[in-house]
Design a protein around this nucleic acid. Structure first.
Lengths: 344, 344
DNA sequence: GTGAAAGCGCTAACAT
DNA sequence: ATGTTAGCGCTTTCAC
């Protein structure tokens, strides 16, 4: 049942090496020979053994995605779309996609050790926020090709990212333009580069519109909707005046929206809300949540691209690839439709 | 840098076979010998090459999860938690987790062919709704161990599932008990076994409470929040009377909620809403969404368990493992807190 | 309890 | 353009 390349070669009347070359599409084999070999191979349902191919070629033909359990649970639609993009490109290049789900950075470092020592992967894609950079250090130390999602905490790490300064700028600019100043910026932990970048853009927009950034309250929140709920509630309790909330994720935007409502303020009439990521459910909150589409699928595709460029040998250390973003304006920053209109 | 078992054996003054046995914890090696070998192995950071181990042992030491792109995007929190469970158990048994993301059943069949022929995986976990059963057929034909999430469309498939009849029953019973009859059941495609089971429980609850099931409108909707929005909107336009909506997923529950609101009805005062899956965002809709926790993480853990039992040789064809569920009652089926109270 | 040796199924020099 | 051959780094009989 399980045919080997030897069987194929024998039946085609060629040597194993010729069969191997033919199957791998090497140009040295004569087209007609190649044709005949392929014919026999497919008729027997032959495919080279992954393990054997890996062992003899010294490549695992597999890439590994390190996916932090916590943050993926929060921006889950993002994570899924990203993986989808990774998978699509990887498969096109005959690479397998493996997954490592980690609770914290220590687990990531351990997992990387295992991966590297067992030579079980040809490259790693980090979905970590990678606060400390120790994961990247480990990757370098092991000499494993890698790409990360987001701006790296240390220099010269190949990475794929949105222009998060611009993301923060565009979102803030929109809120300012529709007259929703002051804006509360609900950010994630300050250690994340994505937070730093978006915050920079947030301030930049204020400057460009001639507004004092000091008037823009910034909350360094946790990562969850609940964190945002509590932080915005606190701000409301302190009677801080604001006309809108810009949250760093859709989950946090939803938490913020609940906080605003709990204090008897209306969304969007009293306070406009804008999230980021454009998760699947944003279109179906009530009112629909405005957000920023970050094109997770494209980020995934780009990540493998950058990784394969290294694995295949075209290594450019400081490559940084930027994927487009766009504002998606819905009800939470505009006028409500349907039921809510009647309520006011 | 890259040590082989040969280096370890040499340094320990033993043969490679002894080193191999020691590293794999075989009881035949004398404890002190084993100790010495392990010492040297760890000090050199030695780990057996994954590829070599696979080739010589005839096992890939990897399991593959087939994840449909569409449904995972919708119940994304579920999917992530499930994978997390799978990963945890797999890692404990030294198995790698690979991911195959598919658009439709044809892609699944193709992917399975590749996986089987290349001997790239030792077993497959199907997250498919698997409407037709052709994916399972392919798995059997190839002799690949497998487990599926949900009740199989054909007999004797090892599967992990919730008791979905009971899920449907419990959810409907709760809505009936709080006086929210008639209930609209917003289901997924009728071909899914999960839909069939929950519907059966839904009807069962009606019978047990002495209610005519005919009065319970059932909508065979699509899978998305938008589908639910449209179907419930249609029902409202037709002036069908109902006091609650039970949706087969949280996304659909959110779609239903918007539809209800768009027609000027209040949630939960006029219409109660209940979803299923207990996705991360349910706690932060407004009001918070009641749902059914299905314990995705446990489902994941159980799936690998069943799979490893087969791979390791303890195969029981008709195994079906049931994971607990529980109702999570929140605002959409109770009384609203905060802002909404003031509105009424 | 430990060692010697034969593969596992490919790929990749090196020959021809 | 095709064939010969030597491994890749383990596991696993089979001896001792």
């Amino acid at each position: 049942m399980a045919k080997t390349i030897r069987d194929i070669a024998r039946e085609a009347g060629v040597s194993v090496s010729t069969a191997s070359l033919a199957i791998n599409g090497d140009s040295r084999v004569k087209p007609e020979t190649r044709e005949r070999i392929m014919q026999i191979a497919t008729s027997h349902g032959f495919r080279p053994s992954h393990a054997a191919r890996s062992l003899s070629s010294g490549k695992s033909w597999s890439i590994n995605v390190i996916n932090p359990a916590v943050s993926s649970a929060l921006t889950s639609g993002f994570s899924t779309r990203f993986l989808h993009g990774v998978h699509e490109v990887a498969r096109a290049y005959r690479y397998t996609v493996s997954l490592t789900i980690i609770e914290d950075e220590n687990e990531a470092v351990d997992a990387l050790d295992a991966l590297a020592l067992e030579r079980a992967t040809d490259g790693v894609i980090l979905m970590n926020p990678s606060e400390s950079g120790c994961v990247v250090e480990k990757l370098r130390e092991r000499g494993l090709p890698h790409t990360m999602l987001g701006r790296a905490p240390v220099p010269d790490v190949p990475s794929v990212d949105n222009d998060n300064v611009q993301v923060g700028y565009d979102a803030a600019a929109h809120l300012i333009e529709i007259g929703r100043f002051p804006i509360v910026f609900v950010s994630g932990p300050q250690t994340h580069t994505v937070t730093q970048d978006r915050l920079e853009g947030f301030y930049g927009a204020h400057r460009d519109y001639g507004l004092a950034p000091d008037d823009a309250p910034v909350v360094f929140s946790g990562k969850t909707a609940e964190d945002a709920f509590e932080d915005v509630s606190r701000l409301l309790a302190e009677d801080r005046p604001f006309r809108s909330v810009l949250a760093i994720s859709d989950a946090q935007a939803i938490g913020a929206m609940r906080a605003v409502r709990s204090h008897g303020r209306r969304v969007p009439e009293d306070v406009a809300i804008m999230g980021m990521n454009n998760d699947d459910l944003t279109a179906f909150t009530d009112p629909p949540m405005s957000s920023v589409e970050l094109h997770a699928f494209e980020l995934g595709r780009a990540s493998v691209g950058l990784l394969l460029a290294q694995i295949e040998g075209v290594y450019e250390p400081e490559t940084r690839q930027i994927v487009d973003h766009e504002l998606v304006i819905r009800g939470t920053t505009g006028f409500p439709e349907g039921s809510l209109e009647g309520n006011s």
